[in-house]
Design a protein around this nucleic acid. Structure first.
Ligand SMILES: [Mn+2]
Ligand SMILES: [Mn+2]
Ligand SMILES: [Zn+2]
Ligand SMILES: [Zn+2]
Lengths: 143, 143
DNA sequence: GGCATTTCTTGACTCGTTCCAGAATGACCG
DNA sequence: CGGTCATTCTGGAACGAGTCAAGAAATGCC
């Protein structure tokens, strides 16, 4: 089965109609892990031509709601999207350039940590973000 | 030592001039943990009268840069500010109403977790966000 | 092919925050 | 007590990321 056919299948299985923008956005998210909407939009347009700003946002939302993509919202940077879903993995974020890398979760399913005091909250997820410098930024001369 | 005098001291120790807005913002952040800028602004004005929008934002930035307050940026809600700094504590966030509660860190200093694979990153902090429903929202009838 | 449903386009608009300029204020040092 | 320079004020405008609204177009289904 071709990659394209696989994306079509994923959309149909999620009860989503197969459209050119949807296929292209899904492909772009797969091709560019942790890309922001802007990057997805550029990739989509290079791939299939004109697609509106709004269509990209709508599709990203539909795919996110359907669980086909995951939205990550690092403070101070636009939302990022990725195709690795359902494995409860975590992220490494570079303080300097914003680069993001995946870190497998030791446990693999949410919530993978338990809070000391839960204050009555019903906790269903523990998100871990490791912050530091990526190899490139660590090596770079002091700016 | 009065509370006010203690805030003055904190400001001076951070090499910040002691001004009415600064003292008031610092007090407001202490009085309202995890409050957003808007809430801080309202509290400050109730306390000392007219203070400009920018002054509040400027002061919050100055205090944050000086390490006297910590800024938290929950996705999808405006930035929150708190006076608990330097203890590497974590947060419980309500998915429904955005309420935030503190969770002590078992370790107490960053980074309190170690990533399985670090991909060459120099990690200096591991931030944990527990997500779920606060007691009130969990008890609330299905909306 | 026809029709109802869903999706796309266009463009305005929101929100929280930052930037701007010039004038006024007032903290702190000597 | 000055002088000086950081800080604040006033009143805007502008920002970036994302959302809303209304109508046009496309699609799935029979
Ligand atoms: Mn990832
Ligand atoms: Mn806290
Ligand atoms: Zn980097
Ligand atoms: Zn709640």
């Amino acid at each position: 089965m071709s990659t394209e056919a696989r994306y079509d299948r994923m959309l149909r299985d999620a009860a989503l109609r197969v459209t050119r923008p949807r296929r292209a956005v899904l492909a772009a998210v797969h091709a560019h892990p942790h890309a922001d909407a802007e990057t997805v939009m550029t990739a989509v347009r290079r791939d299939v031509g004109a697609v509106s700003h709004q269509a990209v946002y709508d599709v990203l939302r539909a795919l996110t709601d359907a669980g086909l993509v995951r939205r990550i919202q690092p403070p101070g940077s636009p939302a990022r999207y990725e195709s690795r879903v359902g494995d409860n993995h975590h992220h490494l974020v570079c303080r300097s350039c914003g680069a993001i890398a995946d870190v497998d979760c030791a446990v693999g399913e949410a919530p993978c940590l338990t809070a000391a005091e839960h204050h009555g909250f019903e906790i269903d997820e523990a998100e871990v973000v490791y912050r530091g410098l990526c190899p490139r930024c660590a090596a770079a001369p002091v700016s």
